[in-house]
Design a protein around this nucleic acid. Structure first.
Lengths: 228, 228
DNA sequence: GCAAAAGTGTTGTGTCTACACCCATGT
DNA sequence: ACATGGGTGTAGACACAACACTTTTGC
């Protein structure tokens, strides 16, 4: 009875497109939950780390070079999460920039995070948890770099942030907050005005493209002298 | 060659005692790393969740009723993290209140987090990561409840926070921040003055003893009207 | 000139730190 | 009285939201 345990790595791959957050889902062909949508991933090999594993499995779905950020979320272990089998799953959050449009296989599709289709197992919960994690990190880290293009206008960045956060963000304040923190820097370039005219926007980039915590002390900060 | 993978649950059990943060460590009897200290835990059974597993293993070390908080940290999967065996480890953060002094077995001891003894495998890293997680959560959640007694004076709470954060916190401001957020409430009671006199301190308690996020919007908060 | 879009100046607010001061007790 | 520790009052710093206003383009 006590069959062997399997361990899979899953990824919630998110991107913002047309002002709405999307997740990459894969449609199951086989039972259980045939036809339902699931997170991409697969079983862990004996000689790889979980991160290598999820990268390997994703390589079949998305061009891995497009993955601008990857971090571990949580490991699910409920014995009944997958019927008829003992399966542990370690979930990852993967991010893809707005402008990358990786070719994806036929059994795979981008879905709006706000309108998830029927999901297999606990994958719906995992996707929502990933979204929450992203939301939180947008506030106190520079993760934005992973969703935005290399160079962008503040308006474009505003759209990305608004979509990911789920509420409107003012371009004015977004610019000031991120510049003050040293998260953004001007590239020096400008974009041309659109057909309707308007002042040509300046281009910005993220100063770093690695995850950094930019707002470390929400409160209860250490005494001022030791701070700077 | 490809022997079976094992999966263990480990816990970084932290408490604050005498103004210093401590971890519960277990001294290994067997090779590898005989004599080195390791995090308590053990192998995952086929019919239990990881959380049940770590609770079960901890029950042998600490009275589980003393565990005021438990949350999953991360799963380590480097194939070489444990020599001669493929072992995955899911780490948990466990917290014990200041006043609980659970009896612990002979092969187990509390160690100062700042002065870890030689640690087995990657357990040293895990312990430090857990400490960081606690530090961060003290700022924007009510986790303090898990480190403090049921009722306490602000001075006592200040000691706990200072120890866990690693820097001085002013009692004045700690009180105001936590009261304003509705995290603390007065019990109504007072403590007697010490032998040196002084005004008798009021007693407080945490309003909730479940983890809650109390400072959700570090920045980039939603527009004001939707906030309240 | 006028509309459109970008960006700056400015004001107000909320939340925190720092520090002065007042309160209640023991000796 | 005075020392000791607890607690409040208040001022200043800071980071942010909100909104008015200026800038730069197309038509």
């Amino acid at each position: 009875m006590a069959e062997s345990t399997t361990h899979v790595a899953l990824a919630v791959v998110l991107r913002v497109q047309a002002g709405r957050p999307q997740v990459l889902l894969w449609q199951r062909g086989r039972a259980p939950h045939a036809g339902a949508w699931s997170l991409p991933g697969g079983t862990l090999d004996s000689e790889e780390t979980l991160e290598d594993s999820i990268r390997r499995h994703l390589a079949a779905k998305v061009d891995v070079r497009e993955l601008s950020h990857l971090e571990q979320l949580e490991t699910r272990s409920d014995p009944s999460r997958v019927p008829g089998e003992r399966q542990l799953a370690t979930a990852y959050l993967g991010l893809v920039p707005e402008d990358a449009d990786p070719s994806i296989p036929a059994d795979t599709e981008w879905h709006l995070v706000d309108e998830l289709p029927p999901m297999a197992f606990d994958h719906g919960e995992i996707a929502l948890a990933a979204r929450e994690r992203l939301r939180a990190k947008l506030s106190y880290t520079n993760v934005g770099f992973a969703l935005a293009k290399d160079a962008f206008t503040i308006s474009e960045l505003r759209e990305v942030y608004s979509a990911a956060l789920g509420y409107d963000v003012s371009a004015t304040n977004l610019q000031r907050v991120l510049l003050r923190r040293g998260v953004l820097e001007p590239t020096g370039g400008r974009r041309e005005s659109g057909p309707a005219g308007g002042r040509p926007p300046a281009l910005f980039r993220f100063r770093s493209r690695k995850l950094e915590v930019t707002d470390p002390f929400a409160v209860l900060s250490p005494p001022r002298r030791s701070r700077a």
